[in-house]
């Protein structure tokens, strides 16, 4: 073979290497990186306001709660993330247990009601959502509504309800059940669920299916129906919401969390971001915007269309004790995952 061929390859390889090197260095850019498991639209609204106010650019990586929680744990000290936002608490607990969070600035903690943040202050609540039983009144009369979430594992409910077990939302609910009822009862309940329920991918799909009469009812969070109503309502017009209340596991209110990574090289900007979203402007987005999640700021009001948080009679669950790892393990054991 002619000597010119290696020469050609050398050039080709060099060009590829340069391309790659460019990519590697491009990853280390200015501004902060937010690992976002919250609804994309909500975080985008926060980021837009924040960048406008501070001029700090924000890069968003979207994912799910426990996916990103586990990812952060694996990335450890070298994580590119500066801030972590979730929909539910368990993933925050996961990252916190790995000692990856920097303490949240006291000023930020001050802004949030003490019920919506762990006492140690490693992370902070940024919004809240309530478990709800959505049903199709045409198929399920009001008098037949379940008294408790735990009832749904009984044979009477076979084939009559839906959920999205692969989602972090439902896994948070399971974590709450686990916290309240213990491991054995939870596994028993999950096994009953496996026989009874129909799996959908995403709470929106559950709502849509209930609306279309494909299934009688479903366990989701409250805001999906409100979001849909605020748009065309075509996926929720045939549905009604039932809140379990009475401190039932099904009345669980899940806290969406936010935290600053200890490994962040942009501590100041990251803390600023957390301060912004829990502050007046940030919480106002929850009241005026299209997210319909509950505000958790001390003086912040939620969207007036929602049932007030204090009326929901949620169980007292310590958010920092929610064990998502165990919850997923139990769900895997029950054959749900």
């Amino acid at each position: 073979m002619s000597p010119s061929v290696p020469y050609f390859f050398k050039h080709a390889v060099l060009a590829t290497a340069l391309l790659a090197a460019g990519q590697v260095f491009a990853a280390d850019s200015v501004g902060i990186v937010v690992y976002n498991a919250q609804h994309e639209t909500l975080t985008k609204a926060w980021v837009a306001g924040f960048t406008e106010e501070t001029g700090i650019p924000v890069t968003i990586r979207n994912g799910d709660d426990t996916e990103m929680g586990n990812q952060l744990v694996q990335e450890g000290a070298a994580s590119p993330a500066d801030v972590f936002l979730t929909e539910n608490s368990p993933a925050m607990v996961l990252v916190d247990n790995a000692k990856l969070f920097a303490p949240v600035a006291p000023a930020t903690l001050e802004q949030v009601g003490s019920a919506y943040r762990p006492a140690h202050g490693q992370w902070v609540g940024i919004a809240a959502r309530s478990t709800v039983f959505v049903y199709n009144p045409a198929k399920l009369p009001e008098k037949d509504l379940p008294k408790s979430l735990m009832d749904l594992a009984s044979p009477a409910w076979k084939g009559r309800w839906a959920a999205s077990p692969a989602g972090a939302d439902f896994q948070a609910i399971v974590a709450a059940v686990l916290e309240q009822k213990g491991e054995a009862a939870t596994l028993e309940w999950l096994k009953g669920m496996k026989t009874n329920f129909t799996a959908y991918r995403g709470n929106s799909s559950v709502l849509k299916a209930v609306n279309a009469g494909q299934v009688d009812s479903g366990v989701i969070y409250h805001y999906y129906a409100f979001v849909d109503q605020s748009k065309t309502g075509e996926n929720s017009k045939n549905t009604a919401l039932h809140y379990f209340k009475h401190q039932d596991p099904g009345a669980f209110v899940s806290i969406s969390g936010g935290g600053v990574l200890k490994s962040s090289k942009h501590q100041e900007e990251a803390q600023k971001f957390l301060q912004y979203i829990t502050g007046k402007e940030g919480q106002d987005v929850l009241r005026t915007g299209n997210s319909f999640e509950y505000a958790v700021g001390k003086d912040a009001a939620s969207n007036p269309k929602l049932v007030p948080l204090k009326d929901l009679d949620a169980p007292k669950v310590d958010a920092s004790k929610l064990d998502s790892k165990k919850a997923v393990e139990l769900m895997t054991q029950a054959g749900l995952l």
């Binding site: 426990t66 996916e67 990812q71 694996q74 077990p165 692969a166 989602g167 997923v328 995952l337």
Partner: peptide, 14 residues
């Protein structure tokens, strides 16, 4: 199913 597990556990053993 792998995707669901990934969404729940990142690259967990399952």
């Amino acid at each position: 199913a792998i995707f669901d597990q990934f969404k729940s556990t990142f690259n967990g053993p399952a």
